[in-house]
């Protein structure tokens, strides 16, 4: 079974009134889910994808999103 991949990114408004990045991830079976990334996670995602533009992250594995969220979560520990 193939790894789920990022198929779309967009800016959205978070509950607290800050901008966040919503990443759409597609599974091999056709399912799609969405995860919102904050500033730190987005920066980590762009770095790990060597992305110069946010659209460059499209087509990348979901693992990069997971790792970016981990970096964001662990930033103060």
């Amino acid at each position: 079974m193939g790894s789920p991949i990022i198929i779309d990114v967009r800016i959205a408004a978070a509950h607290e009134g800050i901008a966040e990045l919503v990443v759409s991830i597609a599974y091999e079976n056709g399912g799609i889910t969405e995860v919102a990334l904050d500033q730190i996670a987005t920066s980590a995602l762009m770095d790990s994808c060597n992305a110069s533009s946010i659209d460059d992250v499209k087509g990348q594995s979901w693992v990069k999103v997971r790792d970016a969220l981990q970096i964001s979560y662990n930033r103060y520990q």
Binding site: A13, A14, G17, I18, A19, E20, L21, Q39, T42, S53
Partner: peptide, 19 residues
């Protein structure tokens, strides 16, 4: 609806499409 606030002291993803 939700509004987005920012100042240039703190990075904001609002600018992510402006490299």
């Amino acid at each position: 609806p939700i509004d987005i606030s920012f100042c240039f002291e703190v990075p904001s993803l609002l600018f992510i499409r402006l490299p």
